[in-house]
């Protein structure tokens, strides 16, 4: 990595922010989107015995939250290494 430490930290932060925004958009879509704003629309679809909107509100959103955090952990660990900012 030929970047100076300062540039590396800056690039690291930019990538982190972009990645965080993508994950937060998904976070918002599965809960506030599918579970609240579009719940009536999605309830017209059946999903394993549930109306889909209701399923998102009481099950799906929570599963998605858990997956989102672990994806974040995994991506950030890679990012830490890419810019040589990982802990020993």
């Amino acid at each position: 990595m030929s970047l100076s430490k300062e540039d590396a930290a800056r690039a690291y932060w930019r990538e982190n922010l972009r990645f965080m925004m993508i994950l937060l958009v998904i976070w918002f879509s599965v809960s506030f989107g599918a579970g609240i704003l579009f719940v009536d629309l999605l309830n017209n679809i059946q999903f394993f015995g549930f109306p889909l909107g209701f399923w998102f509100a009481q099950q799906g959103a929570i599963y998605a939250f858990v997956v989102l955090i672990f994806v974040y952990v995994w991506k950030m660990n890679k990012l830490d290494r890419k810019y040589d900012l990982h802990e020993e």
Partner: peptide, 20 residues
Amino acid sequence: YDGSVYLMGWTGGYVLLAMC
């Protein structure tokens, strides 16, 4: 369905905690 506010509300905060 109204009970969903607690289910999503008391779990979704951890995503914010982890990332922000």
